[in-house]
Design a protein around this nucleic acid. Structure first.
Lengths: 150, 150
DNA sequence: TTTCACGATACTTATCATGTTACATGATTC
DNA sequence: GAATCATGTAACATGATAAGTATCGTGAAA
């Protein structure tokens, strides 16, 4: 099953925007993500609705950060793009009539719930600002040219 | 994205088989799972290849347990059905040229790795026998009629 | 030899993120 | 105000994959 990369893509965009002056167009962003401007607008609409970014039409328009990156976590972004299910496996029926199936589901869902709690906690504990700073640190440590092209 | 229910289904079948005398046909199993016999054979082929079940053709044929349930974990079954990816989210590119994207991927993959380790540990810690016993306990506690129809 | 049940192949369906085309809307520039 | 730029939105195509279906072959039991 192909993976949902919306969170990953939006984080990528947000970090670029955090180190970029002025708005970025969908077309520019699409090139960064190697995709289509419409996909960018569609996905970023969630971030806009959540107030994390702002979009402006017309000349000089585009997308810009609209929130304090210290206060937005990776989990917030995950939710802003629709908070898709984190797992690719699960039970077939929600409320099985069969007692055996119910027992199996409970065992599996217990395990999944725990893993989800861990993942949610991890994503919720990291702010975009921290992620951006850790990126800066990587650049210094690894001797990368900082701004980066894409 | 619709979830992969192979693990859940196979556990359901295995628990029934553990409390059932003689082989069960694909058709019988398919009714339990509310699906098609071909789907059953296709999915159970993995369990057979791994040696967890055995299949016999002809009159009186069907599927039967072929392993010590104490020694088979839920993780083993997950792997026997193909060990599909556990997560529905992930990064777009494996080895991004962009340093920002690489940093994002690393952060996300760290979190996913941790959650996966937890989930794998949980699934690996439970044997089919334990799962079956916990089902028995549920029946007693809840006053269910034990054998169950589907 | 008939019936039963699995084995295997091929094809269809369902789902959903992603990709694409087309056009409307609003803002800026001239 | 006309042209241009950029987003907003709708509609549809694509790709991947689990699941569903139809069909026929194979081997075992009655």
């Amino acid at each position: 099953m192909r993976k949902d990369s919306r969170l990953s893509r939006m984080l990528h965009v947000l970090l670029h925007m955090a180190r970029h002056d002025g708005p970025m167009t969908s077309e520019h962003i699409a090139k960064m993500l190697q995709t289509n401007p419409v996909v960018v607008r569609r996905t970023m609409a969630g971030l806009r609705d959540a107030g994390y970014v702002r979009s402006e039409k017309g000349h000089g328009g585009g997308w810009a950060i609209a929130a304090d990156l210290e206060k937005v976590s990776l989990l917030d972004i995950h939710r802003a793009v629709g908070g898709p299910s984190l797992f690719a496996i699960g039970a077939e029926h929600e409320n099985p009539a069969c007692a055996v199936e119910a027992a199996v589901n409970e065992a599996l869902e217990d395990a999944l719930r725990e893993a989800e709690a861990l993942l949610v906690a991890r994503l919720g504990a990291v702010s975009l600002a921290e992620l951006a700073r850790s990126f800066d640190a990587r650049c210094v440590a690894g001797g990368w040219p900082h701004p980066g092209g894409s």
